[in-house]
Amino acid sequence: MLYFVARRLFSALSVVLATLVVTFALFFIAPTDPAAAICGERNCTQERYNDIRENLHLDRPKVQQFAEYTAGIFAGRTFETSGVVQDCKAPCLGFSFKSNRPVTEMLASRIPVTVSLVAGYSVLVLTIGVFVGSMAAKRRGTTADRVLMSSTLVLSSIPYYIVALMISLYLTILYPILPRGGYTPLSESPGKWFAGLLTPWLVLGIYSCTQYARYSRGSMVETLSEDYIRTARAKGLSDRVVTYKHALRSGLIPVVTIFGLDIAGSLGGAIFTERIFDLPGLGNLVLSSLTTYDLPVIMGVVLVSSVILVTMNFVVDVAYSVIDPRVRLS
């Protein structure tokens, strides 16, 4: 088990490292010159432009720049702009071109928003989605099962952002049944944190729950017909124990696999959700940075997203091996 975790950890770190290289390359592939972007359009003289290039070390070899960027992340670094020295502490991702604030600081306030959103989403799909699917599998062929499954099909064939906009419009503004979206840090007020995120969670979660219900139903129908389920019943176990202990454990394996693949998608969904409910998360930040070519911020968001993604996938891998002991061997 320990060996398994260590191996997965190693591969996770190499993915982060690769992302680091690729995002850094953005600096040079991007259709904008960073120095020109900082310099602005109006008061930019050749002298000032050269000055900025020199301060950002853009005139140095690319390998050295990368080394400095990477070193900044682990040890911090200093920037000197026209004689003013700015200290950038340990996980240094540079300064925003536009606001001149450290990127790390900008991200720090936004990561909890996106993480809250994705975590709530995960809890919803893995509980309600899986539970609904299991119930449908147990009652397969009945009217309830058919109604449930066809309604999930209808719901999941409407594009997500339309569902989100409609719910937001009808249920929080026109008929304020649900609280409006907003973000209050968890440490400040757990109640407000929950209330503000409830609608975004439901919107993002229920939409995916329909898909998870379908995956789980399919997987559970298959599992329930396994020989070892018959064995479990032959032991004299109750229907509930057979379904939610013996069948669900095997039935979860494909669902967890899909969940692992789906996490990237849920981060994408988070961008829409943050936009629609105006939550100050990473998605909103990256959208506004893209329009202003604020490269350090974009790089920062991509890097942090990849770390979130890799972490979640690592958790999924470990969860997978906890569910299925056979995974640890291979």
Binding site: E226, D227, Y228, T231, R249, S250, D324, P325, R326
Partner: peptide, 11 residues
Amino acid sequence: FQDPQSSLHPL
């Protein structure tokens, strides 16, 4: 049961 491979819970 007939096939102990499939009749025992693998997990």
